[in-house]
Design a protein around this nucleic acid. Structure first.
Lengths: 391, 391
DNA sequence: CTAAGTTTGTTTAATGAATTTACAAACTAT
DNA sequence: ATAGTTTGTAAATTCATTAAACAAACTTAG
């Protein structure tokens, strides 16, 4: 049941620590690693040599002396393998090929009309096959696939429920692993987005952040002490169903007055339809707002207000340092930000704690793919240099 | 920064695992421990002997044979030391002396009128002194003090903000450690209550639970995968400030329509005052409800409804298996339970997941003291047999 | 330019916790 | 009584880290 301790475990821990420093602080010397980790120079030397044998680390040449022998600088070899990250959206699929550092080397997007799960999964497999065949030669090849999905997943990579896709109980991980024969990770798109922002976006220097994905529904990924926080079972995607009005309109989830009914793309379009009539799309509304139509701008500003209401709840419930807003609606930043910030300022106990930073994503629509790819990379490293569970 | 691996770490991990099994599955033999942990019999033998030398484990005599030599059964020695657990309430202090298994051996309660923090802390010290001097002789003596407080704490045991006490920035841990010269742990009373319920109450067999403390305010302690979940910084005590009506009345926290304004003891008393006039106390209302006064019962039922609204939010936000309601208002279970359950049934996506169990605490008002004492015990064991941080 | 001191990284021996193997003691079953 | 099982200990082995010593490479002061 529990992980017992032995010499093997010790080595895995230390190897993982050494690799971590080479990944994040490179270029770095053996001596410096020994200094910051507290391991002896001999131990670091031995572990680094093993990492070099497995092609994960390279010597890049000597560095500047600090008064003695020049250090040999080490670099993480990001091109020892490649990962695939996928954002499985409601209307499209965005997939990228990244190296082990998360750098995007190929990118593909296709639309899908979501006739059936089978068809979409076929499209998904096709796009992944194309990326795999376009990957550069490398020691480890394609080390894994990460997929962010708009719904709730379990720990075995089953997509339990994706209301906006209309899918239920799809064994996505299993299907993909059988097809490609490499490790596959499935997670909620907001969780993936949060990790993407933490690793590559605005959240790089923040240990506690919440990523809110405002799309057709609302989802949130929560990073606490640098790690993705998952509720008991696939928490995320549910935060949209925190009620902001206990006697409000009925939601399909059974509850009343859910946040999602006020602050999602779906809510926006519904409202626009009611007010203006006819067919409405987000792109249309963005265009009309851009053209200066006051009624449309007012619509976005109301959305900003409702976004703020939920954000205040999240601040009170999770106390993050940083809130990053992403997803399709992030494109409306221009009109959403002001009412949102106004509400935050008005409704928070400012003398007690400083207000968290609130920003829109810098990664445009790539938070999720990057996070998904980094799931795959993390799984790959976990299989070589394993981290310890608590005892 | 990070915990590196060495032989010492290995031993601590394994010793901690062995002790854990003796604590939870005793009486148990060395051979059985080896079997379930995967450690060799020799290793287990050696670790058990060390644990016996440190008086934490006893041999209790031979057990039943399973076809060979009879096993020597081991027992955790719960009386090797004693811990103190305190529930620092708004109007009273409840303190207990427990053994290392959490069994209460002494209990004391005093009222306080909260004139000043200094006075209350003096009372607190007096009651602890009395418990200490009444403790039985033991190998380790008093191993620590755990205190649950109605407010937000930081990691250094400072009570940052306790609105209902009117305290701010009290260095409680430091003061107590200087006075008693033993380790002291401070945490929110709802966190302590959650741990108490998990270890000794209704939550023993549940890995994911939320304990909601309904008192003058509302707090919640969240256990995920068997462990207390803390937000970025002292999350708990804040859950009462999740808004259930985005345009509701103003709360002292700055936000509008906070849950606490609808579902706390304070809210109940306010409402009763508005409806009946004059001075009102909870005990009075309980008495009148017990006597069958319809208007008072209706008041409690409304409170039950509002409790349910927040509980649905918690279910949507954390997806727990089990919700335990405790705190002072738990005494009104009789009238709260029905409207609460009705609301839950109506407002949850039942076809998708099974509704979590919802129960009132079985520990009456001892959840917090027991949890607080178990914090102290946990700290004691962490200092001898340490658990590993992730790498 | 030389000598002294510093820094880097490797080598060698020691440490110690777990494992492997062997074994004695205690017990059951036939 | 004999064979087989289970429990727990003992001795030898393994292996990753540490500690200490050292060689190589470099800087700096005079």
């Amino acid at each position: 049941m529990k992980q017992t301790g032995d010499l093997n475990l010790v080595k895995k821990i230390n190897k993982s620590i050494v690799l971590h420093h080479i990944r994040t602080d490179s270029p770095i010397s053996r001596a410096r690693i020994a200094e910051i980790t507290g391991l002896t120079k001999a131990t670091v030397s031995s572990l680094v040599n093993e990492l070099m044998e497995s092609s994960l680390v390279d010597e890049i040449g000597v560095g500047e002396s600090s008064g003695g022998r020049k250090p040999m600088m080490l670099l993480f070899n990001g091109t020892a393998g490649y990962a695939i990250g996928v954002d499985l959206g409601v209307h499209d699929i965005l997939a990228v090929l990244t190296d082990l550092t998360g750098k995007i080397v190929r990118e593909k997007r296709v639309m899908h009309d979501n006739n059936s799960a089978e068809e979409v999964i076929e499209q998904l497999k096709t796009i992944i096959r194309e990326l795999i065949s376009s990957a550069p030669e490398s020691v480890y090849g394609i080390i894994g696939i990460g997929i962010g999905v708009p719904g709730i997943c379990d720990e075995d990579g089953n997509l339990l429920f994706a209301p906006n896709l209309g899918w239920e109980n799809v064994s996505l991980q299993k299907q993909m692993e059988e097809t490609f024969n490499i490790p596959v990770v499935i997670d909620n798109e907001a969780n993936a987005g949060a990790v993407g922002e933490k690793q590559f976006g605005a959240g790089k220097d923040t240990a506690n952040l919440v990523y809110i994905s405002i799309g057709i529904g609302i989802g949130a990924g929560i990073i606490i002490k640098g790690e993705l926080y998952r509720g008991a079972t696939g928490f995320s995607g549910e935060i949209g169903h925190i009620s902001i009005q206990h006697d409000g309109p009925k939601c399909r989830c059974g509850s009343l007055g859910c946040w999602e009914l006020y602050a999602s793309e779906h809510a926006l379009l519904e409202q626009a339809r009611r007010e203006f009539g006819g067919a409405v799309t987000l792109d249309m509304l963005l265009g009309r707002a851009e053209a200066g139509e006051a009624e449309v701008i007012a619509l976005f500003e109301r959305l900003g207000y409702y976004l703020g209401v939920g954000v205040v709840n999240i601040i009170n419930g999770y106390n993050p340092e940083f809130i990053i807003l992403g997803g399709r609606l992030a494109g409306a930043e221009k009109w959403l930000m002001k009412p949102l910030l106004q509400l935050l300022e008005k409704r928070s106990l400012s003398h007690l704690r400083k207000l968290p930073k609130v920003e829109f994503s810098q990664l445009s629509d790539r938070s999720t793919v990057l996070g998904a790819a980094s799931f795959a990379v993390a799984k790959f490293f976990a299989s070589t240099t394993v981290s310890v569970e608590r005892s």
